[in-house]
Amino acid sequence: MFEPLYQLLNHLLPQALAGASFLNRALVGGLFLAAACGIVGVGVLGHRMSFFTNAVSHSSFAGVAVGLLAGVSPYVGLVGFAVLVGLGITALRRRGRLSGDATVGVVFSAVMALGIALLSAFRGLGREMLTYIYGDILALTEGEVYLAFGALIVAVAFSAIFFNRLALTAVSPEVARASGVRVAFLEYAHAALVAGIVAVAIRAVGLLFVTALLILPAATARNVARNQGSLFWWSAGLGAIAAVGGTIVSVYLNTSTGATVILLGTVMFGASVPLRLARKARNP
């Protein structure tokens, strides 16, 4: 299904590596995942959920352990647990007993401790966990490329339906509610989406870097976009460029692919800052 894309991206690779199927899968899978993360990142920044994505990604220790111990795949455990943690944080935050970041902090600590406790009790789990800490985009299977494509479709579909309502809720939940937006439903659905995308992307870039894959493209896009509509395209596009560019650069420099993708994303963010300052000078 993705053969034409494989062919296209093959041209960007050095001659010696052209045609290597693992690289093709890394480039195409990475492109899908990074574009999905870029799209979801717009809502994550708008709703100030960076810390939330960190907590969700670090819940993967416990998710993978639970998945393995329950006898289902670690991947199913990871995604399921992440979505549950995302919904749990949202429920606690909405009750308002603690401030938003305190709630996330408490859940973050709890799921992290649970994961480490499980890993130490069942020592065989440790090796499996390494894959999720650092990720391995070069080891993506054909099935995982399809999963990445699925993640992109879900991110686009969610944005097609909820983009406006999500942005309005970020500006003012009261204005959104007054305009007929079901704010509670939207917050839960958004939390589940973000958690699900984070969990799927962990396989490629690892739990240490996944937050950056959501935040960097969206943060760079805020500096270059002129309005809310173009923010979406910039964020998705910059994510895709960072993933494809970073993977290729890592092949040439023989560096860690996940880290190189994030470094390229950081360089793009740095380059966008003067644009933001210039715009600020025009709109003091």
Partner: peptide, 24 residues
Amino acid sequence: GVDEGSPLTVMDFLLLKLQRRPLW
């Protein structure tokens, strides 16, 4: 909940209420 760095324009803000089609 909007800061100085957000590209959301005044027109965008009104359109978020006025149209179902996503702004992108």
